[in-house]
Design a protein around this nucleic acid. Structure first.
Lengths: 160, 160
DNA sequence: GGCGATAGTCTCGATCTTCGAGAGATCAGG
DNA sequence: CCTGATCTCTCGAAGATCGAGACTATCGCC
């Protein structure tokens, strides 16, 4: 994430936090890899399933187009992707009754269970590990994550 | 990251932090996507360049095999990957003089500059945003990231 | 100091993924 | 109703990944 000149200790500590953050993302990515390996899926397919799970968690039904936006694939690739996931029984296509051009995607019971098992277990253990922190500390962490997300989002979308 | 039953406020706050963490990883991923788009690379290629950069930052020279381990590709795919990146001038193959079976990978000046511009800018702004936090708060965050990484690593590698 | 076993990379052909272009169906607004 | 826009799908081409096997270099052992 960097490799800059040495500076004062305060800056060094903050730069170190940047590296810790990067290391964490690497490990979280590895958790997904493991899920992929366990279920014979590729990276994209896992990203797609997670996107559908995320949408489901917040009560939205994801459409094919929405999935494409989430995983950054063109429509032809989304069709192929959903074909794959439907073929192995992880996803169902359901025509949207409100707009019959759309296809909404639903996870199968088995895929939901597998996802809950794998990622739910991680979430549980993360929450468990957070019990070592006071409520004030958790509040600091929440603020930190929000702020860093804001910075990252700015870099992700806008010009430099 | 979950979708569990409602519980006490303390648990809810910690679960919320899990979601914030996930949102942050999504945005950080989007930063990579933007780099990919800007340079006509695919996801894997960016991951590979970042792996080489990371290795360089900590003073190690990454070999072809090491890169394969880092991005989880078989040797044939690594050859193709390095071919691509070498063809567009981002990478150089250098025969390791110490072990002439190995090929070590070096980033070109232009790729190094592009990486520094893109990811270095992010790192700079992240560190900048961290100035809103006291040293004690940064220490809490560092501990938090370390602990979460440990949990994630356990899930990434071992049995459940 | 030579010989077999091992390790690191590459080549080749097969398979899987992604894409652009365009077709077909559905919707929204006049 | 038309017309233009939106959503998904089909098709064929290009790109990415892989397993098997070749080739070279190294290491351990005698």
């Amino acid at each position: 994430m960097d490799g800059q000149p040495a500076q004062d200790p305060a800056t060094a500590a903050r730069r170190e936090v940047g590296l810790l953050l990067r290391r964490l993302t690497v490990e979280l990515d590895a958790v997904s890899s493991r899920f992929a390996l366990a279920h014979g899926l590729n990276r994209t397919d896992v990203r797609a399933l997670v996107a559908v799970m995320d949408a489901a968690r917040r009560g939205e039904a994801l459409s094919a187009g929405g999935l494409g936006a989430a995983v950054d694939l063109r429509s032809a690739s989304v069709t192929a992707l959903v074909d794959r996931l439907e073929r192995v029984g992880h996803l169902r296509r359901v025509r949207d009754p409100g707009d019959r051009r759309r296809v909404t995607l639903e996870m199968s019971e088995s895929a939901t269970a597998a996802g809950a098992e794998h990622f739910g277990g991680l979430a549980r253990d993360l929450v468990e590990a957070m019990r070592d922190y006071s409520d004030d500390e958790i509040a600091v962490v929440a603020r930190f994550l929000t702020d860093m997300t804001e910075v990252a989002a700015r870099h992700a979308r806008a010009a430099e």
